[in-house]
Amino acid sequence: MVSRRASRLAQVRLWVVEAAVASARPMSVQVLCETTVARLGVTGAVVTVDNAPGRSETRHATDPLGARLAELQVTVGEGPGVDARHDGGPVLVADLDTRHSQRRWPLFAPLAVEAGAAALFTLPLCVGAIRLGTLTLHRIEAGQLDGATLADALAFAGFALTLLLDQQAGIPLAGGDPADDGLPLRSAQVHQATGMVSAQLDIGISDAFARLRARAFADRLPLNEVAADVVARRLRFGSTNDAP
């Protein structure tokens, strides 16, 4: 049975691949942002990446407004992106020009409205404690994302996450296990194995996940299988038997 999540993700992947092929460009965060805008009918899309805890940098913005909104949040130190990175959940703001929004972000919200934004939807790109960045969609008209659009937006975020993880693990973008979208607990073992590798190699959780994914890619095995081997203690990452 192909789950609905898997089919949304496959659809989104296909859209991005088509856009890359049509413009004769390699797969990239930029192509993904452009495809998100084209398919979801939003004004713009921005991917930010976290270089260090609390330090976020714009990787790509499809329009100047998006770049401005990302920059504003860095400047004033608050906003939906800051919140999303902090607690790992989406922050969906259908209208920035309401009392609730203005109270929640007293510095950011008025400036965002002044810049011309009306709605902002930030989806964190994270795997548990591994925080890679955010995908943010904005609109110049207020209003919610409907259920289907939100589901697609989450699928785009899943794919953006995969691209950032691939980059981190040093494997070709979107070249790894297509079943791996990082997020759902399809397989708790992947996250369990990440924790174990982090302890075995005495490295950070983010590096541990990159090592696990790189290993799966190098061995041409599904990530799940490599993780299951680690959890069952058939495979141990260590200086002795883990060739880099």
Binding site: G88, V127, G128, A129, Q144, L185, Q192
Partner: peptide, 29 residues
């Protein structure tokens, strides 16, 4: 609205759940 509650709350809870899996096995090891 319900789908937003699901999206925001549940995603956050799922991430917490992933963090717990990561932490649990790091501590076990």
């Amino acid at each position: 609205r319900y789908h937003e509650i699901v999206a925001e709350q549940l995603r956050r809870a799922l991430h917490s759940r992933v963090v717990i899996e990561q932490a649990k096995c790091l501590v076990a090891e």
